[in-house]
Write a protein that binds this DNA or RNA. Structure first.
Lengths: 344, 344
DNA sequence: ATTTAGCACTCGGCATCCAAGAGTGCTAAC
DNA sequence: GTTAGCACTCTTGGATGCCGAGTGCTAAAT
């Protein structure tokens, strides 16, 4: 429905505004190489584009800036995906090639490289808890009345937790408990552990263990506080360098959000395979009303694992960020696959 | 060397500036109940105080503000330690009375309560690594070529780390390794583990274990990356609400520091027993040139364990913060002692 | 029918000016 | 030693006016 020329102009305006963060006037559009119309013509078109809702004016005599709808149209139809520069690719490669023992290290690195390359804030969510299953559980007594519970998931994530411990439980009994748990709970999704414990395991424990009541209670305690998936950040303060975030109150609101991992992981989690772009109010979250969030997922055997995300102003360098995210998420998938095969 | 009256005036000015964040004029000082001199007299005294370096003027016709030296004198000689309000005390109590399994939870809580009560940013450092010794070490194989190493310190801190694992090591041998390590390394300070391993243990392992070389290598890997002590924050963005931090660049510098735990723990660690107050440039750190850091230590059996700290503007509510910190750090010491006795 | 040149108009940004207010420093009187 | 009085200084905030960037419209050019 938009004419060829309108598309060109819209694209030019978005591109210009993305790089300069200042309202774009008709003159500067007409000066572009690929556009051969006078400012007056451009003005007429801009006026139309504004009427259609793709542009808006900060005030009556400034240039135009893209509206949310304008950005949306831009990313949906006008975006020319930029080739990733050699340098970016190699940066990603070297960051992710480092030897690592735990997958979390990769995730941490990914967050770092993302924020470095984009100068926005990156958020990377680890493997989702409710997807992962128990691979192994261990109980290690560390004093008369304390033990450490180690939980290893199928994704290779290791977690420890200290619990109070029925002092009367003997080490032979302890071993029995661990054996039973491992036998019965291997492969069970973490979120179902609690359920499973009360339904099946507790009656089994009853048969073998004296102090079974306090033991079950202890285990319930462990399973109750199931960790949320971890959230990794890169460049938390990068957003402060964007001109649109020079207001301290605004900044404070956003930075406070980062202190609440649970909230962040809710806001950034994406289940769609591939890239998701949410512009401004599409986030349905007031503090992000003029932010764009781009997320991509990484996976294992086609099974969705986690999300890498980036938070920036709506005025975001879409082409660049998109290609970086695409490349990075695929790389993580590859790495994860390789790592998993090696350590299965 | 200062007259009684000068002291009164200095104190009045600091107090006033602390609460209002605005230069204090002679008139407002003379209006205070406890001061019965005319503005003119006050002016003369203020002029003297300025000459002595305790006050300064933002510009020639504003009121005075305390200089760094002024603050210093204030905290050293003029401070009337405020009684902690019932409410504050009970807030601290309830925050710290919650049942907890790991000492880290207390520390986390402490950071939170501190920042809530003061509306500055709090930093709490966990038990210092180089002070703590090994209580127990465990190796748990989780796949053909991976194991989790669990390290428990005498302070009850538990740490896990995933390592690559010589696939050929059998579980009976593994057990031997663990036994040897526990027997030989218990009580050894974490920082000496590496040394001890190369000097003593490796030769012992050689006698018992086939794959001793790769095992030693693996252990070295573990001990090399000795965790820094953890840093807990409360109210990271609180500082943004102080009027003196309304400049985005300044704020960014400070927030960036918080991303570097190692740096933070260096800046905030205090070895002095009791309270330490560092005002402005006394921090010897440019970004903190107009910040005050107050630290207190918590301990166990008189042995210094960790530090609780607060970061705010030099214009800090000293009396209140000091009494809160004092109370909190003593409370933590008590709690830690009780906890340690119970779980030794 | 498009496109464009021309021109009046609008508005933010910036500098300037001014008056008010807060505060100082000095002097002279108490 | 203290204080009243007063001239002086400096910030703050509002009013004013100008400039430049940009628009919207109209009429001419293509």
């Amino acid at each position: 429905m938009l004419t060829e020329r309108q598309l060109m102009i819209l694209k030019a305006i978005v591109n210009d505004y993305i790089t300069n963060a200042e309202p774009v006037g008709s003159r500067s559009v007409s000066k572009r190489e690929d556009i051969n119309y006078s400012p007056a013509t451009i003005r007429n078109e801009m006026s139309d584009l504004e009427e259609l809702g793709f542009l808006e004016k900060p005030h009556s005599s400034a240039g135009r800036i893209p509206s949310q709808k304008g950005y949306r149209y831009y990313v949906d139809h006008l975006l020319s995906p930029s080739k990733l520069s050699k340098r970016d690719m190699s940066d990603i490669q070297t960051m992710l090639t480092n030897r690592f023992n735990e997958f979390e290290q990769v995730i941490q690195q990914a967050a770092k490289v993302l924020s470095n390359l984009t100068s926005y804030t990156s958020i990377v969510l680890g493997p989702e808890v409710f997807e992962s299953t128990l691979r192994q559980i261990q109980l290690i007594p560390i004093s008369d009345n304390q033990a450490v519970v180690i939980i290893v998931t199928d994704t290779g994530h290791v977690e420890n937790q200290t619990v109070h411990f029925p002092g009367t439980l003997e080490s032979s009994e302890l071993e029995k408990v661990v054996n039973i748990l491992n036998k019965r709970l291997r492969g069970v999704p973490l979120v179902q552990l609690k359920e499973k414990l009360t339904e099946e395991i507790s009656s089994i424990l009853k048969q073998y263990i004296n102090q079974y009541e306090s033991t079950v209670e202890m285990l319930l305690e462990v399973f109750r506080t199931h960790q949320n998936e971890k959230v990794f950040y890169g460049g938390k303060t990068n957003i402060l360098s964007q001109p649109e975030f020079h207001d301290v109150e605004r900044v404070r609101n956003i930075l406070n959000i980062f202190e609440e991992d649970a909230l962040v992981s809710k806001l950034f989690r994406s289940d769609d395979h591939g890239l998701t772009i949410k512009i401004g109010e599409e986030n349905h979250f007031e503090p992000f009303a003029d932010c764009t969030i781009i997320t991509a997922t990484y996976s294992l055997d086609g099974k969705h694992m986690g999300t890498v995300g980036i938070l920036g102003p709506t005025r975001m360098e879409y082409p660049r960020v998109i290609s970086i995210m695409d490349y990075l998420s695929k790389d993580m998938t590859k790495l994860l696959t390789a790592w998993y095969q090696k350590n299965s």
